[in-house]
Structure formats: structure tokens, C-alpha cells
Design a protein around this nucleic acid. Sequence first.
DNA 1: CTGTTAGCGCTTTCAT
DNA 2: ATGAAAGCGCTAACAG
Lengths: 343, 343
Amino acid sequence: MNIKEVARRARVSTATVSRTINGSDKVTPETKERVQRAIEELGFYPNTWARALGSGRSSLYGLIISDITNPFFPELVKSFEDIAVQNGQEVLVANTNYDPVRMEVCVRRMLQRKVDGVAIMTSEMDARLITEFQSRDIPLVFLDTGKAEKLTSNLVVDYAAGVDAAVEHIVGLGHTAIAFIAGPMMLRSARVRREAFVGCLKRRGIGADWIEEGNHQVDGGHDAMARLLGRKTRPTAVLASNDMTAIGALGAIHEHGLRVPEDISIVGFDDIQISAFTQPALTTVRLSREEIARVAFRALYSIRQDGGKGAEYGVKPALVVRRSTGRAPRTAGKAEREPALVS
Amino acid sequence: MNIKEVARRARVSTATVSRTINGSDKVTPETKERVQRAIEELGFYPNTWARALGSGRSSLYGLIISDITNPFFPELVKSFEDIAVQNGQEVLVANTNYDPVRMEVCVRRMLQRKVDGVAIMTSEMDARLITEFQSRDIPLVFLDTGKAEKLTSNLVVDYAAGVDAAVEHIVGLGHTAIAFIAGPMMLRSARVRREAFVGCLKRRGIGADWIEEGNHQVDGGHDAMARLLGRKTRPTAVLASNDMTAIGALGAIHEHGLRVPEDISIVGFDDIQISAFTQPALTTVRLSREEIARVAFRALYSIRQDGGKGAEYGVKPALVVRRSTGRAPRTAGKAEREPALVS
DNA sequence: CTGTTAGCGCTTTCAT
DNA sequence: ATGAAAGCGCTAACAG
């Protein structure tokens, strides 16, 4: 079943069939009609590869992510796919699992498939691999980890604004003993969030005394929180580098017989779906996957038209207040070791 | 950059290059060596489509799922991709979102891409669409919703065994007032689980008096549990049709001021990653994604060699006991309305 | 073991 | 507006 059979049946040339399929305007309505019918009758689907081979365009976009088991990414993938399919494009998803070797394999896959563009949504990316794409004139878009240049755009997330909103909320509730559970320091995005936190506290004249490192997964958050609770003085509020971490922290707090938010308030980052259903529902900073996906796809899709210049796109997170944050306890965490109301 | 340039550089024919790439054994080590070097020097990657066009095999497998935001599926996708990539195959993932229209689009995408086989892991599938594949001789594998026939295999999950293990565990803890929160009845797999539950209770002479329908999502589980708690008599244990549902139920129970497992025990189904980190950690029936993915891929990959007969593959779930189940409370849920210790 | 060559299914000039 | 024909990059007989 191919274009030739359709052509024969419609009594036209293959070129005309091709034109009809591609919506060329230089086909008489009558012949177009005839071809359409032949296509229907034969149940013909054009072979995408032959098409790509012939035209040089694959209608395929690559999407590289680092951890598909973090709900943030499936949600991103879903959005990205939706948008791509709406635009008649396909998506090839690759999951690197934070592994440089897998990353390399992913890149090769993309190259072999001759993708028309790649959205690199991991927080780390080998410069050499980037070159592989650029030397082949493949448009790229990064999530916060590149710079706008020829054929490559960059989405910059305003982490500082997100963290700031969270801290403002917390401080407004009377907290001054505020901890941060960071992501793995090998990840740029994690470092950025941490720095935003430290800077934000400093600006407000609050000490950043409780910082622990997690791994952006539930278990890391749990362990980091446990360490925090084991210290001599305890924070009354905790910001987590992402929601998975916050969920782990929530568990650790419960295990220690403390209550959220009565004893400790907690704020996540991302607003993954499940965060609305934790116990208690998590206050968090929403980073819209839908927005990221939309902007990323647009950036790739339009980059060639725009003369391939590449641009910067801003993405602003937004605070979502739920039940995991509340007023600071009267006797702050520190009180355990200090006589109350000394002054 | 193509096979021709490589051939020229290595001073051989394109055929020899092709043979080298494909690991044919009829190439002298020396020439092979020479070709390899040329490939390296040129940074050549074979064009997958041209390859597919030439050979008739796409090395692409389709994976259709119904809800990528349910963590069960990303984990399945991840496993499936891993295995495929290990075998030099690619995966095209399509998410139907339970929507028949999207399903149709997905099928067309697969057809156009000339996939070598499709794993259909949704719980519902239009027969007409199946025909589309079968009439094109494309191997299929279903998750519990097909039958073994020409070119199509079926993984059958022993839900009954899973439910049975859960009920046995619960009954062993002294519970007799056992509820079930089902999935949406429009889903075959949800119906099967529910029937397994009812049958299992009947076999043990226990009444199946508390059954509510959820939607396999957190909110549905939450609402169903709330309805259960609103009844005149309450169960002391609850089985959920999947973990998302169980997590929702957990939330509802907490909101009602009850404790898990002291007041109510709860068991999930699937064992998604996050279930180990809920508060308390969820006892659940594990349905291994890794196993499903592995078996599904094998089934597709080998179906042609086996004469295209198609087969049935069994998958057995296993109970994972964590902290959400405990001994039945002395005064059963019913006791609220019955005088205690009448007899 | 290696080269020659005819496709694979579609797009795209270039004529007409 | 339509057709003829030359690729696109690779594979797979078929020779040798």
C-alpha cells in the first residue's frame, strides 16, 4: 500500500498524490477530491520515513529528561506531546536517568533519527554533546542551563522569585528559624535554588543556619529532615528544593511525632500533582509544566523562521498555599535548649 | 554526511560499509577496521529512516498507555524503553488519556511510523483499531485485555491471586469488615479487580458490604473513602483498586480524625514508588512494571520468530506488607451502632 | 569477502 | 495544474 497505488487508482501521477497529501494549492479541487477518495478507499497512510527521507524534515522533536520517575517530568512530557501532536509533530522522549553514558546514547538516538529540534530539560548537559547538535544545525532549547545563541534558546526560570514568594509567606507567618533541604549539589538547578534561598534570607537579615542536602527524591528528603530534627536546635519552617523532597520531609516529621504545620511548616517546589493530596496538602511553589512545555515547543518550532537567532524566555513560578504552612509555634524550635522568655 | 562518503573515505563500496555497520561476519577484520575508522573520523551516524526504508524493519515499537500521570505508567514506560534500547530498538510512546479520539490518533501515528509491534497497555481497546494493526501484520501484545491469536499475545495478570493475598493478610489480622474502593467500572481491569475481591470474600464467607467506586486517581479515592466513612457502619479495613486510590483514601481517613492502621487498615494495588513513602507507608500488592515491560517486549520481539502464533504470559502480583495494615480494632467499626460484646 | 545495482516510498525540481 | 524523473540514505540480492 503506497502512493503509487493511490496514484493509479485516482488516475493521476504520484506527484499529484503527494501534493494533495501536503495540501498544496496547485491541485484542482476535482483531482484533489478524486485522490482523497482513493486514499480513503485504500485506507492509505503515508509512510513517515519515506516522507522524511524525501523532504529532509522529520517532523520529530526530541525531548531529553533526567528522571522519569519524578512526577514532574511525566507531566512535562505529557504537555509537550500534546502540543507537538496538535502541530502534527512527533516526540521522541529520552530519559537519561542522570547518567552521562545514557545521555550520550540518547543524543546519538536523536541524531540518528534526524530530529528537527531537541528540548533538553535536564539540569546538566555535556558541552561536547551540545556541539554535536549545533554542528548539525539542530535547534535546541534548554531549561535554565544554556544561553541564547545561534539556533539555541533558553527558558529561564525565575527561581529567585519563587523562593522569595515562599520565604515571604513563611516569614509573614512569624517564622525566623527557616531551613532548606537542597537538591544534589551536582545539579545546577539545585544549586541555583539553594543560592536563591541563601540570598533571600540574607537580604532579610535572617541566618541560613539549617541547610541539608537531599537528592530530589523522597528518601533523600526524608533523611535530610531526619538530620535536621536531630540537631540541637530545630527550625520551625522548612523549604524543600522540590516536592518529592518535601514529601519525604513530611514523613520524617511525622515519624518524629511532630505535627505539620503546628510544629513545623513545610514548603515544596514544583507543585506536582500528588502534592495536593499529601497529609497535609503541601504548600508549594508551582512551576507550570504546561507553560514550560508550551514555551519550549514554540521556541523549537519557530526558531528557524526567526532566522535561527535563539532567544530567552522567562518562566515565573507561583506560590500555592495549602495546609502545610501555619503560624510559627510560640516557643520556637530553639526553645528546647534555651530557657523560654529569657529577656 | 552519509554512507557514501564513508565508503569513499574507507575506499570500499557502500555495501561494505552497510555490512560493517550491521555487524555482518563476512567482512575482513582489516576492512572492517578501516571502515570503523572512517566512521569515527567523520562522526557518522546512519540515518535510521533510510535504514528502515531499505530494510523494511523500523526497529520501532509502539507503547500505548492510558494515563501518564498515574506513576504506574511512567515506571512502565521507563522499563520498556530500557529493554528496547538494550536491544537496539526504539520506542514510540502514546498516551491516550482514556480518550477514544486520542486513541485513534495514536493508532494512526503508529501505523504511519510503521512500527514493528505495539504493546497496548490500556485497559480498553476498540476492536476496529485492533483490526487495523492485524490487517497489516503488526504484532500486538495486550495487558490483560486481549487473547492469544495470530500475531497477538496477551499478558494475563493474576489479579485474583493478588487480591487473595491482600484479603488473606487482612483477615489474618482479624478484620471481617472489609471494604473495597473500585476503579471506574468502564475499565475492564477495574472490573476484574472488583470481581476478584467480591469472589474472594464470598469464598471466605465474608459479606462484601462496602464497595465504592473511585476513578483510579487520588481525588476519587479520597471521595470514595469519605463516602465510606459517612455510612452508618464502617469497615475496619479497606482494599483499594490501585495505589493512587489508596493514597486518596489515606487522606480522607486522616481528615476524619482516624488513624491508620489503628482504626482502619488500608491496602493498595500496584506498589508505585511513592507508596513506600506515604504516611504511613502503604501495604500494597505489587504489580511489577519491570516484569510487565520485560515480558511485553519479549513477546513482541520474538513473536515473528515463533511463527507468529502468539501466546499467553502470566504475571503474578505479590503482597508487600508495610505500615498501613494492622490488627483489627477490638471494637469493630460496626460497634458504633452495636452494643459491644453482646454475646 | 567485496562490489554493483535495484529498489524502499515519498518529495521535489523541471518540463509541459 | 499535472507528469516524469531524479534523488533522499540505506539494504539486500546477485555477481564475481
